[in-house]
Design a protein around this nucleic acid. Sequence first.
RNA 1: GGCGCGUUCGUCUAGAGGCCCAGGACAUCUCCCUUUCAAGGAGAAGAUCAGGGGUUCGAAUCCCCUACGCGCUACCA
Length: 480
Amino acid sequence: MTDKVRLRIAPSPTGDPHVGTAYMSLFNKAFAHRHGGSFVLRIEDTDQTRYNPTSVGEIIDSLRWLDLLPDEGPGIGGEYGPYVQTERRELYIKHAHELVDMGHAYRCFCTSARLEEMRREQAARHEPPRYDRHCLRLSPKEIERNLSEGKPYTIRMLVPDEGTTSFQDLIRGEISFENKVLDDQIILKSDGLPTYHLAVVVDDHYMEISHITRAEEWISSTPKHILLYNYLGWELPKFAHFPLLRNADRSKISKRKNNTSLKWYREQGYLPEAMINFLALMGWSMPNGEETFTFEDVKREFTFERMATSGPIFDLVKLTAINGKYIRTLSDEELYERLLPYLPEDLDQERVRRAVPVIKDRLTTLGEFAELTGYLFGPPPDYDAAGLVPKKGTPEAARAALERIRDLLAGLPEPWSHEEWESGMRGIAAELGLKAGDIFMVLRVAVTGSPVSPPLFESIEILGKEETLRRVDAALAKLG
RNA sequence: GGCGCGUUCGUCUAGAGGCCCAGGACAUCUCCCUUUCAAGGAGAAGAUCAGGGGUUCGAAUCCCCUACGCGCUACCA
């Protein structure tokens, strides 16, 4: 074991790339790199029933999107591979049997049916569900017979009846468990693949992981892992259990109650740097109190000591606010570039460029651009003729206003200035005894199809005189 | 039920014995700006620091108890 700093994330390829994976990656990569170490990706695919073949690629894509790519991992390379657990099965089998030989583990031939029955009875007696060690009492002869009959078996670790197992958590301090509350956990399944508990210990050892970071849901299995390290005679890594991201009801974050897929955030148009900033604010903060910062800042400042212990609620509203803030700091050109993946390719690019500065302050995600600016690239959404009529006005007033606006626009030189247009508009309002706001509203609805829209003048400018006039005529026709 | 972890404004947090009758951000509300909506600016409201006991001249900060929340309790991770 060296004193190299090596951290890893170990997601299971069971579904969409999870926001929790990004959360852990952020701090792991920051800490590893801060100390000149490596950040590793390992795929924990020992549960074949939940395996999803597209998942690994999507996890990597998502990490690349967030600029959190690992230094080592499947498809990335590294000297500690393979980085996929099913490709390492011989290693687990070897150590599982080694543990059996040492008397620290034993074969269990119990069927799932018997185990279920056992648990049912324990529940009925209000006892904690634990393996009753039926197979620990098997004689060598019985074991021999079961083996020769080809009975399937699992391997369970043997937990001491007495004593306590404790460890120093980098985030939470000392945590200890009485060994008697620990179960004789299955470490090798009957399909020959390890359970998490064995695989994680073996891999973290061989991959020379120096700091084991994971969510707090793993705290209660840590003593089992420590026991395994001790049985195997391996040096203990450091442990840090991070707070669990929560739903609004404080339960563990789930896709039922939250958008947990990183693909979703990308599709909506959240900026990776906003995502990073938001995630870093969950349970952590900059020493100087700064709330807007980058990955580089986290890398420079991250320490386990500053990590909070209680699980933060994942608040989409705050993420969205941060995202809007990041969008506003982008230059028009940058924003244009970032918008491209979210737009149909056949959109008039020149028009998109001109729409960018107009819409920037109103964007909260990149994905909103298309809907917010739809009227600039096609006909305005259909609206009711009543929408053209000023609050205290009549359809006749709206008609008179539109006719004069049409004449005003038609008579304006091309290009015309905001000033000459606005004074013309105000003149019409005065002439008709309407408020300026009413006049602008009539035009706004005629041009954008909605009483709520991006700035009117800029919109007209982008659409051009001809198209604007067409829309005014359409509005007139609507009024009948 | 057992074991473990946690508990500062609605939310994210600052706070490591006196600087705190608790600061910032998001959200909310008001005002300003303004042709709508935003953005921006200025304000307001919002936490008896879960509750109760200690320790101390002094506690959000240290200790104990209680309550509540969450997690684990699978041949899932």
